[in-house]
Simulated scan of single mutants.
Amino acid sequence: ATNPFTITKLDVNEKPRYSKEAFKTSTLQRDAYNYLGYSSTRTMMLAQYLYEGIDIKGETTGIITYMRTDVTRLSNEFVDAAMMHIQKNYGAQYLGKYQTTKDQNAQDAHEGIRPTNVLHTPEYVKANVDVSSIKDEKLFEDAMKLYARIYGRTLASLMAPAILEHTKVTFTSNHHDFNMKGVRLLFDGFLKVYEESKNKDVLLPKFHQGDTITMDAIVSIEKQTQPKPRYNEASMIKKLDELGIGRPSTYASIIKTLIERGYVTKEKNLQPTDQGILTSDELDKFFKDIINIDYTAEMESNLDKVSEGNYDKLSILKTFYEMFIPMIENAKVNMKKIQPVMLDETCPRCGSQLVIRKSKYGEFIACSGFPKCRYIKKEEAPTDS
């Protein structure tokens, strides 16, 4: 096909795009990873910093609500103040409706993650912070980037939807048809204050049927069905949340533990190691009745009931240990382990062979006679030649 191309078919539909609800822990961690590149651990550390307070006009002020929460609800007082702020600063056409959903397993002990004061915009905080109180400029800068996401998301959740014109265009040249899909923004709505991360919209100009278009280039792209990508921190947290595994306070520590114990490596995505694969296989073999999604979610629910006084804790412990003790005794004898790498060196204390072992701090050389012999070879300091 060659220029010119004629628009022979045009299908146009207006659709609203609604804002997302305010952040809860899992969605904050996912957004910070996708948009800011923060690990889940760093996100929670920065959120803690914002929650504990920043010195503004001589007073330490916590600028976000508690950051470990599994709900998105907002207080009536905040919603009223935010609605007034939106109308005053953006106009009545930008006012939306407050809505929230609650997961049946949510503890609902805290609000969603939001600014403590709608008047404390990111610009206001930066302009009024006591500069002498900032001990770590990088920490403050990263925290303010996270605060901007929290502030924008919260305000956006109360704003009107964006209106987009979804367009399907057919271009024809030399009796060949070429299709294109895209959108045109008619009203920005909540997008005025909050940029959604990883937005893949193709923005198109206004087209009319019969228009003649000159293409700069025509590129043939071959596409193949791809397998699902490996988990990254954001998608792993999303999956944990969906399956009811863990709590807002444990998502970051779960991933941190997997990395520190050498079960996965963190590159662009989370990659399982040989130790991680073996551990998973062996745990599934020997502990499948208690290490599975359904049992974990049920245990989380029962522990919540215990904390509420609605379940007997001793009966839970009794049931668990009656099932667990035979499993652990069997595993001690029969579970397969990755053996340490043997070296052609002997232990200076007992004469046993030295081996390479692994810990969360890395590899080290030690005696194969552990625990009877606890010798660990220390690295020799380099000497000047």
Score class of each variant (00 low, 15 high):
N3D: 06
D11S: 13
V12Q: 08
N13L: 13
K15V: 09
F23E: 02
T27A: 01
S39M: 03
M45H: 14
K57Q: 14
G58Y: 08
E59D: 12
M67I: 06
F78A: 07
A81F: 08
M83N: 15
L95P: 11
Q107R: 15
D108C: 13
H110Q: 11
E111K: 10
E111V: 08
R114H: 14
P115W: 05
H120P: 07
T121Q: 03
A143H: 03
G152D: 01
R153E: 08
T154M: 01
P161G: 00
A162F: 03
K168T: 03
F190C: 02
L191F: 03
E195I: 05
S197I: 03
N199C: 05
F207D: 01
I218D: 01
P227Q: 01
I245N: 06
S249A: 14
Y251T: 03
S253W: 07
S253L: 07
P272E: 01
D274F: 12
D281S: 13
L283N: 03
I293N: 11
M299N: 04
S301V: 06
N302L: 15
N302R: 15
L303I: 13
K305E: 13
S307T: 14
S307W: 07
F320C: 08
K336P: 00
L343H: 05
Q353C: 00
V355R: 02
I356P: 06
K358E: 12
G362S: 05
E363K: 15
A366K: 03
A366C: 11
C367E: 05
P371V: 04
P371W: 03
K377V: 06
